[in-house]
Design a binder for these strands. Sequence first.
RNA 1: GGAGAGGUGGAUGAGCGGCUGAAAUCACCUCCCUGCUAAGGAGGCACAGGUCUAAAACGCCUGUCGAGGGUUCGAAUCCCUCCCUCUCCGCCA
Length: 423
Amino acid sequence: MLDSQLIRNQLTEVAAKLAKRGFTLDQSHLIELETQRKQCQMETQRLQNERNTRSKSIGKAKAKGEDTTELMQSVAELGDQLKASEIKLDSIQNELNNILLGVPNLPHDSVPEGKSEEDNPEQRRWGTPKTFKFEPKDHVTLGEQLNQLDFEVAAKITGSRFAFMRGPLARLQRALIQFMLDTHTEKHGYTEVYVPFLVNADSLMGTGQLPKFAEDLFHIAEQDYYLIPTAEVPVTNFARDVIFPADALPVKFVAHTPCFRSEAGSYGKDTRGMIRQHQFEKVELVQMVKPQDSYDALEALTGHAETILQQLDLPYRVVSLCTGDLGFSAAKTYDLEVWLPGQQKYREISSCSNFEAFQARRMKARWRDPENKKPGLLHTLNGSGLAVGRALVAIMENYQDENGKIAIPNVLQSYMQNKTHIE
RNA sequence: GGAGAGGUGGAUGAGCGGCUGAAAUCACCUCCCUGCUAAGGAGGCACAGGUCUAAAACGCCUGUCGAGGGUUCGAAUCCCUCCCUCUCCGCCA
């Protein structure tokens, strides 16, 4: 959520920045509502003040034993007027708030302008896509030939966009998770956390998935809980309604969780294989930092995710999302894209974002600034470190040999009973 | 699932329907005193919104004692619903 004062005082500047990311802010409607709000709020507060002072005088009069019937009569008359005014104010503020909750974050000045994915400038590349002496297969063919990956069984058990894995491949996924968690906790200073996979609406509101993106979520209607679409939700909401002392920052958490996405609106996209599933595993990095540190933290966090790809020796590139491709809550995002021989393409495997105070404002995540002793909003960041399902796909496709065997990356072998291949 | 207890500021914790945005203590901040340390003394110290302002500070106003409703001229205090925490019993991976 944006600062409402900013919107009020610098409406045209805000609208211009939002326009860069393709969001049109209805300025005249906002101005109109704002005028109404101001007028109504002042009137309501005037009436409240009136009621309070008169009620107090009743108390005093009674204490002196004076007759109060006339006074009481006069306050009672205020009641209807006050109630009507309060209801009106409430509805105006609700409308304003709903608009505000639907406004995306402002892009940081360093974010390149552009309309879509195609305009995301590449920042750097690491590694070189391997040339195969044979036609490389995609992970679906590889997995099915090994009899370790089965989409039909998954479809029987549940439906489309789920996977069933068995044997070494299932273990390789677990190895990846272990390796990522170990690296981030031991080398990058993150604290491992285990979190709920079902969250309430307040948490989703806090990180920005609600109210706008409800259709992307799985909802348990009975309890009004939602399956998490990313660990970002439960992990970042750790900070909701918290005021951190300055010396507790930065908070750096890493969590492995499954993620559940309805993928509404992506029918026909990536229907083959494990690239786009309703359920997938992810290791997520989350940081809560002082505002002045957040852009350094974004570079560092992105580097932490990159380390994993480098250790796995998977070629990748880093792109900076342009204004038009930026996610709702993000001020700036780097995507890491891994090379997939089966598709002959770089595909997203991690997304690292600085949300600045956007999420913090929604969830009242604050810190006590020693400068002025006052609570101030902190900045939140997160990034996949990495998407495990896609990392598994990348390994299968990049490490395959002519016979359909898959070599196990060096760093994972200790997690795989020191085996060198999956066959 | 059954029975009970409870949710108040950064923390602990008082609170009769009006003079309580909230005692007290701790923590914190400023100052004084003081060989050092410890102790002592004076004062300050919730958050949010509005208004004022070029912007702020100050001031003024409003709201907030788990959440939402209600009763009342007036609610932290009374009533209802919900949420959460704790204890005991039952069940359970």
